[in-house]
């Protein structure tokens, strides 16, 4: 299991000002699985994703990434795990303007102690994988929105990252470009990685093997593992 979140609750504030952002949420992501989380604004989607990636801490419950409980790690150990095993993709690509595509993708490896010489070939491989091998030395400003998001995905999966967490990654993209981004997320999972995709858009959530429905911080429902297209034929 790549991600195991069990009974996770997140409360902001205390006393009569306490707000429950997430309530006893249990989410499992296996190798090869892309899980979509759907819900309206304020339903707790981003909170769930932040806790899954160790960017925020739950008030109660446990979060395990590849069997390691995040709560048991020191700040330095958690930072190392985040750098090495977890990749993030956001709606606003969050690339650094002054760096080329390849330098952006190399950055997490260099922050983890790799030399430029070690990091660059890995970054180029990751860019190759998202179909941007030829644009490695372009600055973000010289890339289209779709190319910038593909660069962000390359940065999220570079090295040995296994868990890919995406917060509305298609929000700023048109339909066909958004689809390209989801195909890349699926490819990552098909290679044995795991992914959580947070979106309010049903069309993109449908790329997940399972879809989890969040309302007011609680998981209210979910679809089973993806059925085959034979059910489509039955609906005729």
């Amino acid at each position: 299991m790549i991600l195991e979140m069990t009974d996770v609750t997140r409360i902001h504030g205390s006393g009569h000002l306490a707000v429950q952002a997430l309530s006893r949420a249990t989410v499992m992501v296996d190798a090869g699985e892309l899980v979509a989380v759907m819900g309206p604004s304020g339903s707790g989607k981003t909170t769930l994703l932040s806790i899954a990636g160790g960017l925020d801490h739950q008030t109660s419950g446990t979060v395990l990434v590849e069997g390691v409980e995040l709560g048991s790690l020191s700040a330095a150990e958690l930072a190392r795990l985040r750098r090495r095993r977890i990749g993030y993709v956001f709606q606003q690509f969050n690339l650094i303007d002054g760096l080329t595509a390849a330098e952006n993708v190399s950055l997490p490896l260099e922050l983890d102690g790799a030399s430029v010489k070690e990091a660059r070939p890995q970054a180029l491989r990751a860019l190759e994988m998202v179909g941007l091998g030829d644009l490695a030395d372009r600055m973000p400003d010289d890339l289209s929105g779709g190319e910038q998001q593909r660069t962000a995905i390359a940065r999220a999966v570079v090295g040995d990252r296994i868990l890919l967490l995406a917060d509305e990654p298609t929000g700023a993209l048109d339909t066909v470009t958004g689809e390209t981004v989801l195909r890349l997320m699926r490819d990552h999972c098909d290679r044995g990685g795991g992914g959580v995709l947070v979106t309010h858009d049903a069309r993109f959530a449908a790329w997940g093997d399972r879809v989890i429905f969040l309302r007011d911080g609680s998981i209210v429902d979910q679809t089973d593992a993806q059925p085959g297209p034979e059910t489509l034929l039955n609906t005729r």
Binding site: M38, A202, A206, T235
Partner: peptide, 9 residues
């Protein structure tokens, strides 16, 4: 959504 998953597949 299940139907969408089928079409998407």
């Amino acid at each position: 959504i299940r139907q969408l998953q089928d079409y998407t597949k």
